[in-house]
């Protein structure tokens, strides 16, 4: 059953990949600015331009350019950067690895603190902690991530000197260094998510608490803590899973600002640089990998759904 669902899902993914990459390919060519001109600069004589355009394949029609890219991509070759000659696969995967670690940490922080705040505020409604949770969720939504990033930087790096202001160390290289390098950027990035998760979880819990089985639980003499942990969370967590899935996509796109402030060489930075330089080969690679990741995350969200709620069946 599950296998059939998986196959169906894959069939749906393939055309989606074709369509997205083709749309992006056509859009890229619509952006004013010519990569050949950007590379040649003052030496852009007509002959040099024509030669370089031919060398980069830019003199071909849109369909032929897309076809050439696609046939190479299908055999695993995403080409080379127009500018630095770097392999697109290598660049995209190494940068994506960095952003993925950053975004995942941000999501973990958002999830842990968001759900904790929501639960605690449900356990003590009207208390200071409930008010605090409401304040945090409002502020998390209202404060833009670049401002929060700069504030965190000013306090924890520049004034207190506890954490580095720039750079990134991979989790697999040095886990402690990773935590130190990624903590401030991921808080800046995850604050919005935390606010959303707190709000969704809180309102879901309120809804769950109005159901009959919770009243039954209370009438059995369970404490509020037992009721929340045994019956409340599992039923209230579904909308949070949806939020996390959406957040992944949002944060992947939003990292560029935080990456710039903390000088983290992630995929956001690579995407912006490729657009600025009109490095079409690199940009296409970035988009492809982004789309694949979002699809995988959506897919994972669906699976988690079925694990959490046995009533959900995929056919």
């Amino acid at each position: 059953m599950f296998l059939r669902f998986l196959t169906k899902r894959l069939f749906y993914v393939i055309p989606m990949l074709f369509i997205t990459t083709f749309i992006v390919f056509s859009f890229i060519l619509l952006i004013p600015g010519d990569p050949a001109l950007a590379i040649l600069g003052e030496n852009a004589s007509d002959e040099n331009l024509a030669q370089l355009r031919a060398q980069l394949g830019l003199d071909q029609s849109l369909f032929i350019q897309y076809w050439n890219w696609l046939t190479s991509a299908l055999v695993g070759d995403l080409g080379e950067s127009f500018f630095t000659g770097e392999s697109v696969q290598e660049a995209v995967f190494s940068r994506m690895g960095i952003t993925f670690q950053l975004v995942t940490t941000a999501i973990v922080i958002a999830f842990v603190f968001g759900t904790t705040l929501a639960i605690v505020s449900m356990m003590k409604p009207g208390s200071w902690i409930d008010e605090f949770a409401r304040l945090v969720s409002t502020m998390g939504t209202a404060i833009p991530n670049f401002l929060l990033a700069m504030l965190l930087l000013a306090v924890f790096s520049l004034s207190l000197g506890w954490l580095p202001a720039t750079g990134f160390i991979s989790l697999f290289e040095d886990p402690i260094g990773f935590l130190r390098s990624v903590l401030l950027p991921s808080i800046a990035l995850g604050a919005v998510g935390m606010a959303q998760i707190t709000r969704h979880m809180r309102s879901a819990l309120i809804e769950v608490f109005e159901t009959d089985y919770i009243r039954t639980a209370f009438s059995k003499g369970l404490s509020i803590r037992q009721t929340i942990f045994h019956h409340g969370i599992r039923n209230a967590i579904l909308p949070v899973v949806t939020t996390v899935g959406i957040l992944y996509g949002n944060l992947m796109g939003a990292t560029v600002v935080v990456e710039t402030i903390f000088s983290i060489p992630g995929i956001g930075q690579l995407a912006v640089d490729s657009i600025m330089q009109r490095d079409f080969a690199m940009l296409q690679g970035v988009v492809l990998v982004m789309v694949v990741i979002i699809i995988v995350i959506n897919f994972a969200t669906d699976i988690i759904y079925s694990l959490l709620d046995p009533r959900i069946k995929y056919e």
Partner: peptide, 19 residues
């Protein structure tokens, strides 16, 4: 040589002794 496109980032990194 570290690539830091943002001016303020370069200044921050200098202040914290990272560069």
């Amino acid at each position: 040589i570290q690539v830091m496109p943002n001016q303020m980032t370069r200044m921050n990194a200098l202040q914290t002794g990272e560069i």
